[in-house]
């Protein structure tokens, strides 16, 4: 579903990602963990199509297409979804308006009929219930005045409505108390399916207690320095990220020796 090969990305000339290789198949849940500044969010943003990043090398294929030339809206219409680390507040645009405009934009792109306001309300009801959100959320301006937890739940609500093929969750667990984390994890788990791949980007192992990944990758200094099964997350939790400094040095040395 997603094939990232040797991806190099820099911002204003400063290299952030230095050769990422990653591959996700339908039905898989992968976690990318790593310390602050390791490039986790950059990877998420680049996949969603954020402007302002220089892609100096590498390729990303998604569902057999070259992803990188596509504008963000086309990626979304092709089923890619990014849950933002810091969801934007958009005063004056009601949540329902955003959800319905987005859903209809994607339906149009797929050649499906648009959904009217009445049917939309019915459609969205059980998704609200799943996330423990009151209907009044639909009529509030997007994320305006929402608590941190409400914003993150709202991201998962959008994900539930848009039913993406590939969901990237960027630090969806940050700033959540344990109850909110339960709700968000329940929402995400309910969206796991054989058709859908999920990429969890997180700093902490905590989220992975609730959403069990198939694979865990450790990103440090712009490279994936280790990959493994769910046990790797526990190892990180026990040891912290400090030991990565060594692993990173090793990886760097190996890489430099490989390309004289």
């Amino acid at each position: 579903m997603l094939e990232i090969r040797n991806l190099h990305v820099s911002i204003a000339g400063k290299p952030i990602l230095k050769g990422i290789d990653l591959s996700l198949r339908p039905g898989e849940v992968h976690a990318i963990m790593g310390p602050n500044g390791s490039g986790k969010s950059t990877l998420a943003q680049v996949l969603a199509g954020r402007e302002g990043y220089e892609i100096s090398a590498g390729s990303v294929r998604y569902l057999g297409r070259d992803l990188l030339p596509l504008p963000p809206e086309e990626r979304a219409r092709a089923g890619l979804f990014l849950a933002f680390q810091y969801p934007l507040e958009i005063p004056g645009v009601a949540n329902a308006q955003l959800l319905r405009t987005a859903l209809n934009g994607q339906r149009r792109a797929r050649g499906e009929a648009e959904i009217d306001a009445f049917d939309f309300l019915e459609f969205v009801q059980d998704k609200l219930a799943l996330l423990g959100m009151d209907e009044s959320f639909l009529y509030r301006a997007v994320n305006e005045g929402f608590s941190g937890g409400e914003k993150k739940r709202n991201e998962i609500l959008q994900m539930a409505v848009l039913a993406p093929r590939l969901a990237i969750l960027d630090e969806t667990d940050s700033g959540l108390d344990i109850d909110a984390l339960h709700v968000v994890a329940r929402g995400v788990n309910s969206l796991r399916s054989n058709e859908r791949a999920i990429l969890l980007v997180t700093h902490y192992q905590r989220l992975l207690n609730f959403i069990e990944p198939d694979r865990v990758h450790v990103l440090a200094g712009g490279r994936i320095v280790r990959s493994g099964g769910p046990g790797l997350a526990l190892e990180l939790e026990a040891k912290g990220y400090a030991w990565l400094a060594d692993a990173q040095t090793v990886a760097q040395t190996v890489a430099e020796e490989a390309s004289p």
Binding site: P71, E73, F84, I90, V93, Q97, T101, A102, G105
Partner: peptide, 29 residues
């Protein structure tokens, strides 16, 4: 707001539609 524009586009709304939404919201106040 470029960030808001990107947020809307990442939901599948094209640039023109996203701009329109933001401008409508802006004058609505």
């Amino acid at each position: 707001d470029e960030d808001a524009l990107f947020y809307l586009r990442s939901r599948g709304i094209d640039t023109a539609g996203a701009r329109q939404l933001l401008l409508e919201a802006f004058v609505e106040e």
